[in-house]
């Protein structure tokens, strides 16, 4: 984690007044967010809302990675995207939408999905990674690199009306490869989901990121939050490190 070096301005204090009085957060927590860089992949239904929440909270710098253009079927959940942008690059719109909310936000917008070629560089730019991608190949890649660089990773996932969330601290908690030692074969790129589910897991994921960055509360370490919005049940289950994990067993 980078050491806080930019102090809060009077403008910051005016904007974040409501959260500066949160117990355990305060000016120190706000300063930590201001000096933090977070990688969010991608800026779809989950990642777009994670980015929006982090921008609103005052995270200083976001690194966003997502290739491609806005499609009509993005719009049930991708709240950073707009109808008039269909057919145009997501990465041309996402930074603008975020800066409308937070003009001081620095955004590194990369119109690529996370890949073997760029993952080292992207993770290196960040203090923390929020994994929101739909493909396990991409998620496992980010996990591998985050563990290698010793960076915390918040993993957000959803299906239909359900979601799950955990926070990986390399060397301390299970990593994503402990849960999924190989790429799940049965996972399909397109799956049923309501946009509100994406928004829910995204807000929870952003909360985890803020907690880790600001040293606030108790993140989901070694725990998997599982929720079902069909009946509004939320449960925490303990997860285990694999002694033979190909990614984190030597941490």
């Amino acid at each position: 984690m980078s050491t806080p070096d930019q102090s809060l301005t009077n403008d910051d204090r005016a904007i974040y007044e409501w959260q500066l009085s949160v117990s355990g957060f305060g000016e120190d927590g706000q300063r930590r967010l201001k000096n933090a860089s977070v990688l969010v992949s991608r800026v779809g239904g989950v990642g777009g809302t994670v980015a929006y929440e982090l921008a609103a909270a005052g995270v200083g710098r976001l690194i966003l990675a997502h290739a491609g253009n806005v499609r009509p079927d993005d719009l049930n959940r991708q709240l950073l995207m707009t109808h008039d942008w269909i057919g145009r690059p997501r990465m041309d719109l996402a930074p603008r939408r975020l800066r409308e909310l937070n003009p001081t936000l620095e955004v590194l917008a990369v119109a690529e999905n996370v890949s073997e070629e760029n993952v080292e560089r992207l993770v290196c730019e960040a203090d923390l990674v929020v994994s929101c991608a739909p493909l396990f190949s991409e998620r496992l890649l980010m996990n591998r690199e985050a563990v290698r660089q010793g960076k915390p990773l918040v993993d957000c996932a959803m299906y239909e009306l359900e979601g799950q969330l955990t926070t990986v601290i390399p060397g301390r908690t299970p990593c994503l490869a402990c849960l999924y030692p190989s790429e799940p074969r049965a996972w399909a790129r397109r799956f049923p989901v309501l946009g509100t589910v994406a928004g829910t897991v995204a807000s929870l994921g952003a909360m985890e990121a803020i907690k880790v960055l600001a040293g606030l509360g108790e993140p989901l370490l070694g725990q998997l939050l599982i929720f079902d919005l069909r009946d509004m049940t939320f449960r925490k289950a303990s997860i285990r490190r694999r002694p033979d994990c190909i990614v984190c067993s030597r941490c």
């Binding site: 991608a133 998620r139 959803m158 996972w187």
Partner: peptide, 10 residues
């Protein structure tokens, strides 16, 4: 017993 299949973002 809870059985959970993989899920991801999107």
């Amino acid at each position: 017993v809870t059985l959970l299949s993989p899920m991801a973002g999107g």
